[in-house]
């Protein structure tokens, strides 16, 4: 009896998920639809005569953009980890004076609208030559992730037993060695969660890309799609194919790291 009831609930769950994911399905469906079938009315619910034209267009035009985004994502992860892991350690374990106000500043920093930051960065980059550079975009994108990273590392590292650190001190390890060979390995899961979000936010960023890197040689994929939409308003199959390709990192992360994603969301992570 209870077994039957649980299958009934699975049924409802499947229907709800299908409704929720319909736009995602539709994106994939359109990406395989032939250009000549795009204006069919009613539209085809399934690409019965699939075409890879959309994907060929992506690979021929958008490949460099994907490469740029990958580079920006990895760079952002690096900057975020280098800044936030040591700071998290100081806040959690080193009895830093002024830890409370610093934590407060980090919380407030997350509330500042991206468009405001973009204007500030634009004004600074214009005069310092960082406009339209990969480095400039990495630094700007890292501001989305650094406060989150510090807060997450602090929360996790607070839970590391002090005895562990004391034992290292007894063995003669200095603060840096303790951090590197005790704290960092233990905090692996937090580091994965922080890296994952930093990468995803940088990969998905539109505001900084569209303001700080509008005309450079190295455009990220979000801007590639945006420009493509502007130039080919009716080529929905190619646009959606690009969208599918741009979603691949998110899909991979969801499959291999769902538990880290859920942990990050509940730790107060919020998408910009």
């Amino acid at each position: 009896m209870s077994h039957r009831r649980s299958w009934w609930k699975t049924g409802i769950g499947l229907v709800l998920t299908a409704v929720m994911l319909f736009p995602v399905y539709w994106m994939i469906n359109v990406s395989f639809t032939k250009t000549s079938d795009l204006r069919d009315s009613p539209p085809n619910l399934f690409p019965f005569a699939p075409t890879l034209d959309g994907y060929t267009a992506v690979l021929s035009q958008q490949l460099p953009y994907l490469g740029t985004s990958l580079l920006i994502g990895l760079g952002t992860v690096l900057v975020t980890l280098v800044i936030s892991a040591p700071a998290g350690y100081a806040l959690a374990k080193l009895r830093l004076r002024g830890a409370a106000p610093l934590t407060f500043i980090l919380l407030v920093a997350q509330m500042i609208p991206g468009v405001v930051m973009a204007m500030g960065f634009y004004a600074i980059y214009l005069n310092s030559g960082l406009l339209n550079t990969v480095g400039g975009l990495i630094l700007a994108d890292s501001t989305i992730a650094v406060p989150f990273g510090v807060l997450l590392f602090t929360a996790f590292m607070s839970g590391i037993p002090n005895e562990l650190i004391q034992a290292a001190t007894v063995d003669g390890a200095g603060p840096w060695r303790t951090f590197r060979s005790i704290i960092l390995p233990v905090s692996r899961n937090s580091a994965i969660t922080v890296s994952l979000f930093a990468f995803l936010w940088a990969w998905s960023d539109f505001i900084f890309a569209s303001t700080l890197s509008r005309s450079g040689q190295f455009l990220p994929i979000t801007l590639g799609i945006y420009k493509y939409i502007g130039n080919n308003t009716s080529q929905w199959n190619a646009i959606m194919a690009t969208a599918v390709v741009a979603s691949i990192p998110a899909a991979i992360l969801l499959i291999v790291a769902q538990r880290y994603v859920a942990a990050g969301v509940t730790a107060g992570a919020v998408k910009d």
Partner: peptide, 12 residues
């Protein structure tokens, strides 16, 4: 699967 919309780039 419900996380998917949240993980997709906003442009997508």
């Amino acid at each position: 699967l419900f996380l998917v919309p949240w993980l997709l780039p906003l442009i997508v």
